[in-house]
């Protein structure tokens, strides 16, 4: 079930719709309107046709990445009072682990990709609930995948990780933060299936610095990670970006 509705969401009906004897793990996420600064509720506006098609794409991608048996997404639009459900995502898989991961992927991606907006009680945009800022929209997420993996022996970017690969995990995280994400590689044919913009090193095989150089030249302000860093989270990226100031030209994270 994929739907946008002006009516109160009946979560139990959505959970019931997932019933499948082959599913041993059911995970659902329910987003409700919380009492924040005395608001009575929030109004959701949306670009309906695109919102539905984007949600369908996200569910299809989740099914491609994890063995999802059933998945439902229902989002409320119009006025939603405090305490009521705004969104329900429910996933059924054979096992709990993939159900948790697929459910998290669907809600996280929905919040960044689907054209739905929270508004305050009046007609003004509810800034406190906006997930991305104009500042982040000016930065490009850059994934370095130009290494030869000579010590590792095989292309690290394509190492299997959580039903997909290292680079897909990194890409998903970066796309949840940045509007524009590019991969710097000298073998674009290897990553063509990811459907992402790609750049080539100006001088190949100069290590990460060559990739950073082409990213800065082509994209301007950039946030750079390597393709073999699947554990980097969007919270860590935002934390690093928050350390920027007018006086700094770069922010670098390192271990002590």
């Amino acid at each position: 079930m994929i739907a946008l509705t002006q009516d109160k969401i009946e979560t139990w009906k959505i959970l019931q719709s997932l019933h499948n004897v082959k599913a041993g793990g059911h995970v659902h996420f329910v987003g409700t309107i919380r009492d924040d600064q005395g608001i009575l509720g929030l109004r959701y506006d949306c670009y309906e046709t695109m919102a539905l098609s984007e949600i369908k794409k996200i569910v299809e991608e989740a099914k491609r990445r994890w063995p999802v048996i059933e998945a439902s997404v229902v989002h409320r639009i119009g006025w939603v009072p405090v305490g009521e459900e705004a969104v329900v995502v429910a996933v059924a898989c054979a096992h709990r682990k993939e159900a948790f991961e697929a459910c998290e992927y669907i809600i996280d991606t929905l919040k960044h990709e689907v054209p739905i907006w929270k508004m305050g009680e009046g007609a003004q945009e509810c800034c406190a609930h906006t997930t991305s800022s104009p500042v982040l929209a000016d930065i490009t997420g850059v994934i370095l995948a130009g290494g030869k993996s000579s010590r590792f022996g095989t292309n690290k970017a394509l190492v299997p990780w959580k039903q997909h690969t290292f680079i897909e995990e990194v890409l998903h995280t970066m796309q949840s933060v940045f509007d524009r994400v590019v991969i710097v590689t000298n073998t674009p044919e290897v990553y063509q299936h990811l459907g992402v913009e790609m750049l080539k090193d100006a001088i190949p095989h100069q290590g990460p610095l060559g990739g950073i150089e082409v990213a800065l030249r082509e994209c301007g302000s950039s946030f750079v990670v390597a393709c073999d860093m699947p554990l980097v989270t969007s919270e860590e990226i935002k934390s690093i970006l928050s350390k920027r100031s007018q006086k700094s030209e770069a922010v670098i994270a390192f271990t002590r």
Partner: peptide
């Protein structure tokens, strides 16, 4: 026509274009 595109995309005969500020569903 309901598909995200880059700003450089050329259009002439499409049905609709949407201008989408940062989304905040969920």
């Amino acid at each position: 026509d309901c598909e995200y595109v880059s700003g450089d995309t050329l259009v002439k005969d499409c049905r609709e274009i949407a201008f989408i500020p940062p989304v905040s569903g969920g």
